[in-house]
């Protein structure tokens, strides 16, 4: 399907690009916000990423997966954005959580309704360092494999694994530190 629309766009049918926008804008937004941590900035990043993708569509190799190629554009655009903004150094989360606590949190969040779980993840992701959130987003939400994450981010496989491990630890630590175990009670 992607290949058909890519050919349409390359043949001069600009409106065929709508297919990509409709299909990938929400996924791209998820990836962008995991890096820039702000909705308005993430929308700007998504817009810039689509324009970059449109302009460089001729360079896209058909043997590659469009999502991987496009996600790498989004990640690069978002990283450039925060570099331009010169964001302050992130506070490194202290990992002080036991296996029992993790199991308790797993049980608690496993019983949440889908909407509540989404709110909870969104709140936790806002507090996790950029690279860890990015890897968690790509692995757990976008269901990318570690190899695909490597292609999208240009991190090494071992780096992705370390970030996943640290991201999971941060996830549980924030649940504990922020006492975010009942997101449905605070109305956010």
């Amino acid at each position: 399907m992607d290949a058909h629309y890519i050919n349409e766009v390359l043949n001069g049918n600009t409106n065929a690009f709508s297919y990509f926008i409709r299909t990938y804008q929400n996924k791209a937004f998820g990836v962008a916000i995991s890096i820039v941590k702000c909705e308005d900035d993430a929308k700007d990043v998504v817009q810039d990423s689509f324009i970059t993708a449109y302009c460089s569509l001729a360079n896209f190799r058909n043997d590659a997966k469009f999502t991987t190629w496009f996600y790498s554009i989004v990640v690069n655009t978002a990283l450039q954005f925060i570099k331009r903004e010169k964001r302050k150094e992130e506070v490194v989360v202290e990992y002080s959580i036991t296996e029992d606590e993790k199991t308790a949190f797993n049980n608690a969040i496993g019983q949440l309704e889908k909407q509540d779980l989404k709110k909870l993840i969104k709140r936790v992701f806002e507090k996790i360092p950029v690279k860890e959130t990015l890897v968690l987003q790509l692995y757990y939400i976008d269901d990318l494999s570690i190899n695909e994450i490597k292609d999208v981010t240009d991190f090494t496989i071992s780096n992705v694994k370390v970030l996943l491990h640290r991201g999971r630890a941060s996830f549980y630590t924030i649940l504990k530190n922020e006492k975010i175990n009942k997101p449905y009670l605070d109305g956010k």
């Binding site: 929400n26 993840i121 992701f125 939400i141 269901d143």
Partner: peptide, 10 residues
Amino acid sequence: IDEVNEPIDL
């Protein structure tokens, strides 16, 4: 969970 954020339309 395939989306965490509210859908956008750009």
